[in-house]
C-alpha cells in the first residue's frame, strides 16, 4: 500500500467532469445508441468516484458497489439495445427526437 502521490480529490473531480460530459451527451445527442453510451459514461464516472472514495476509506464497500454497477449496466445495455433494435425495425430510425407520438 504505497503512497499514490495523487490526491483523492483530483480523482473525484475528474469523475465529476466525466459525469457531466456524460450528462451533456445524453442531453445533446440524438442517436439513441450514443445516448446510451453517454449513460455508460456517467455510470463509469460514478464508478471512478466510488473507487477513489474506497481508496480513501480503505474499505471494500465501494469496490463492491462498483462491481454491482457494472453488472447492472450490462443488463441495462442488453435491454436498451434490444429496444433500439425493435424500434429501428418499426421506424427505420433511431433518432430519439423522432419519438413524439404523444402530444398534449
Amino acid at each position: 500500500m504505497g503512497s499514490s502521490g495523487v490526491s483523492i480529490e483530483l480523482y473525484v473531480l475528474l469523475s465529476a467532469v466525466l459525469f457531466i460530459m456524460g450528462t451533456i451527451g445524453v442531453l445533446l445527442r440524438r442517436n439513441a445508441i450514443l445516448v446510451f453510451m453517454s449513460v455508460e459514461l456517467m455510470l463509469n464516472a460514478a464508478n471512478l468516484a466510488l473507487v477513489a472514495f474506497a481508496r480513501q476509506w480503505a474499505g471494500g464497500d465501494g469496490h463492491l458497489m462498483v462491481f454491482f454497477v457494472m453488472t447492472v449496466a450490462a443488463a441495462e445495455v442488453a435491454v436498451g439495445l434490444a429496444l433500439i433494435v425493435a424500434i429501428f425495425r418499426t421506424k427505420k430510425s433511431i433518432d430519439i427526437d423522432n419519438l413524439h407520438l404523444f402530444k398534449e
Binding site: I8, A16, A58
Partner: peptide
C-alpha cells in the same frame, strides 16, 4: 456545485484514512 462539495469534502489526502 459538485466541485465545491468535493473540495469541502475532506478527501484531499493521498493516503487511505486510518480506520
Amino acid at each position: 456545485i459538485a466541485s465545491i462539495a468535493v473540495i469541502n469534502g475532506e478527501v484531499d489526502t493521498t493516503e487511505p484514512r486510518k480506520s
